[in-house]
Design a binder for these strands. Structure first.
Lengths: 340, 340
DNA sequence: GTGAAAGCGCTAACAC
DNA sequence: GTGTTAGCGCTTTCAC
């Protein structure tokens, strides 16, 4: 019942050494003699002693905890990224403490207050909607804040993204080269930088070919909203012959509506392209042409920015974005098919 | 740069009260007068003070951290469950610290050592493969351990599952009633209790109708393994006319192989049923008849078991399992369709 | 290289 | 109801 904690003092007594000696044995890079180390380690093992990270944090000022703020986990992109991030941080001796932000549990403000209470060493924001003075307070207090898969206009935080604009442009070029004439777009959440950049790149790509968007709906990065958007777009008179949907999660919802409700054929009737390259995009049922997020490199960059802030005190914001390849699959007519 | 921490002492000085008065204001249920509370709160707000959860934990012996051990997040069931669990715990003032166990980062043993170091108040094991003396040490130290979606033979830990055996039986009855004669099974990871129970129930259900398994392969709850299993099962002479695949994650992999590689029609050529009811199962591309895991109730039970252990010291293992409904969709021939 | 002592930020008796 | 005091388990000077 009572959590019997074995302390460094217990080990010290049992081993007949001072408590600080025990501490030193468990402090990487402290000066301890061989015999001392062995004596202490052996008693520690016997007693099942482990240093208390929390007590340590009180004095070192580092908790070895990274707070992750996220608002949903149903878009497959996030769990996969979380898995990678968590692994990478674990490798460096950090762990991820999850904070769900969103309608269900408290607003963003509350969540951030909670985070601060845990004395996290760094914060990763993977959620799309969040803006608060508190975020600045984190930064002001010297806690590194890294935005994952989003940026912010004022560059006060580090931000790691893929090159959304370039991705959008690539998709436009691909659709234009595929001979499409009426090209639509289903937007993500309008407050998100990813949405804005993907659309900007896409429109720029169309413009470069002398084209314009033929139709536009908003899916807000939400599964159900995306269905509604697809219905509206393709039930219209003169519907698009190709559509860029701002992420795979929505694209999958939309494709199901298009094929099963509206009876459209993909890619014969309409081409679909999207963004993220979640695992599902490669499944034959969707076989989605999409821009891959270079998640591994993005995660590396997040960890780097975090550690630079924590361990070197280098909290100056860094904004990195990585170009991701276009994964050409079967959901959109390919350029060469048009060369008859 | 230097993390300037505002302490309760700072607030006390500024407000002209004792440090313990400040502490009491932030301790729910402590006796403080109205004016005192206001004075302290106002200074606290002004200074941006937040109690240090970690320092508090040192004295209370509670960290308000729940360790979650998980080995993969690509099976959509886990992220969705994690989201719910995290929300529920957050509501009670706890947060989830993630520990990834698995080939990539250290073995289970190491991970558990790390967990112990964080003085977590409770542990949830959502991973399938884990067995270690350390797990017992957690229990011995009075830390509540709850297995999520798995049980263990010796009942030393609390375990929350759906009624896998009943689910398996329901599926067998459904397939038998649907007039299927050659019924196959693709197993999950053989070390998992869910696998064992689902198969046992399924076999029992077949036996009750005087039937036996016609074919059996192992997919180990892995996407790629499941594809291989499906290929092997349906490339055989005299392949099954129905198959139960031990979870939706594998079923989706297998269905893609069956339809796109082997040219099978579902459900005309072969019926497919599975287990979990992940969101994807309801998508028209899969439209999978499956047993729903009553995740909400399972999460509630996990939280209950955890809190009983933490707050009431009641760590006696409780094993709960909830029956989940059969979600009848289009991937398997339905009984009434056979009544001609 | 090792021990003694101080103190991280906080809660929990204990007096008043 | 409020202040004083004593630690929680640990790291880190500082002597030796």
């Amino acid at each position: 019942m009572g959590r019997e904690i074995v302390t460094s003092m217990d080990v010290a007594r049992q081993a007949g050494v001072s408590q600080s000696a025990v501490s030193r044995v468990f402090t990487p890079g402290a000066s301890v003699s061989g015999p001392m180390r062995e004596k202490v380690m052996s008693v520690a093992r016997e007693l099942g002693y482990r240093p208390n990270v929390l007590a340590r944090s009180l004095i070192t000022g580092r908790s070895r905890i990274i707070g992750l703020v996220v608002s949903y986990l149903d878009n497959q992109y996030y769990p996969v990224a979380l898995e990678k991030l968590s692994h990478a941080l674990q490798e460096c001796g950090y762990h991820v403490l999850i904070f769900m932000a969103g309608p269900t549990s408290g607003d963003f403000e509350t969540v951030l207050e909670e985070i601060l209470g845990y004395q996290v060493d760094g914060i990763v924001m993977a959620s799309v909607s969040m803006s608060s003075d508190l975020t600045y307070r984190c930064a002001d207090e010297g806690i590194p804040v890294v935005l994952f898969n989003r940026t912010q206009d004022e560059g006060r935080f580090s931000a790691v993204t893929s090159d959304n604009e370039a991705g959008g442009r690539k998709l436009a070029e691909f659709l234009v080269a595929g001979g499409h004439r009426r090209i639509g777009y289903i937007a993500g959440w309008e407050g998100a930088s990813t949405q804005r950049d993907r659309e900007a790149g896409f429109r720029a790509g169309l413009a470069a070919a002398g084209r314009e968007l033929h139709a536009r709906e908003v899916g807000s990065y939400d599964f159900e909203q995306a269905k509604i958007a697809a219905r509206r777009m393709f039930a219209a008179a003169d519907p698009p012959d190709a559509v860029f949907i701002a992420n795979d999660h929505m694209a999958i919802a939309a494709m199901d509506v298009m094929r099963y409700e509206l009876g459209l054929k993909i890619p014969e009737g309409v081409s679909v392209v999207a963004y993220d390259d979640v695992p599902m995009a490669a499944w034959p049922s969707y076989d989605l042409t999409t821009v891959r997020q270079p998640t591994n490199r993005m995660v590396e960059a997040v960890v780097e920015a975090l550690l630079a802030g924590i361990e070197k005190g280098d909290t100056k914001p860094r904004r990195v974005s990585f170009a991701g390849p276009l994964m050409i699959r079967g959901s959109a007519r390919k350029p060469q098919e048009d060369h008859r």
